[in-house]
Amino acid sequence: MIPGTFAYHRPTTIGSAVALLIELGEDARPLAGGHSLIPLMKTRLASPEHLIDLAGIDGLSGIARSDDDIVIGAMTTQHSLIGSSLLSELAPIIRETSLMIADPQIRYKGTIGGNCANGDPGNDMPALMQCLNARYALTGNEGSREVLARDFYLGAYETALAAGEILTAVRIPVPAAGHGYAYEKLKRKVGDYATAAAAVMITMAGDTCMSVSIGLTNVAETPLWAEEAGRLLVGTKLDEGSVASAVAAAEAITDPASDMRGPADYRTKMAGVMLRRALERARSRATA
């Protein structure tokens, strides 16, 4: 399968990349790892006339702590996320989730920025970023603005990214010490998108749940932050009754498509099962 013809650009600064995007308009697409876009181009479902490769721009990858945030450059690959000792220490759920994305080869190329900005409901990072209450830095010709991951996704492949803007970094508030975490993903095989998946971050004081945040992957046109389900758990001992109402509240906000991964009803139920398992595992990892 051969993609259509296009012109290749490799700017060396974010400013020139933004200028190219503005100049070339809708005919241009930024290229990060390319492992979502290039397959689409090979099947001619996408035929951009210009590709703006972000790989030549210095400073777009890296993981660092900045005060109360973890800052991850958009071109940081999943392979780098997995190998980061900083993330393993402060936010190990990022490593756990990254290991469930695609396969080893793809994780060397796939980037956090691409995964977050693409807008594909099947991507795993968006729901995790909503769970972690991350902020995205969007850079355009008038500088950079921040948008909450919880506000970024408008529909399938529709995001708050304006024309001429590039997602350049992800900022994640450093999770509380002793938090529990889990990302549970049901997939048919390695490399598949989720039938349903759930990200959970939790803090406990003794047996009591002090805070919880829940993100759901691939059970609607956008990732879902299950705010109500989380609210139902705070202050409880995560007893069966409370968990059952939280699972029901989470299932209620899903609206999955029926596709080769299963009928909509099944995928909704699987979102509930993934949430239940993630809550259990997150709780077992929390130290009060």
Partner: peptide, 12 residues
Amino acid sequence: MSVKSCMTFAVQ
């Protein structure tokens, strides 16, 4: 890095 060369352009 291990890379799938059917999903990468030579120019990259």
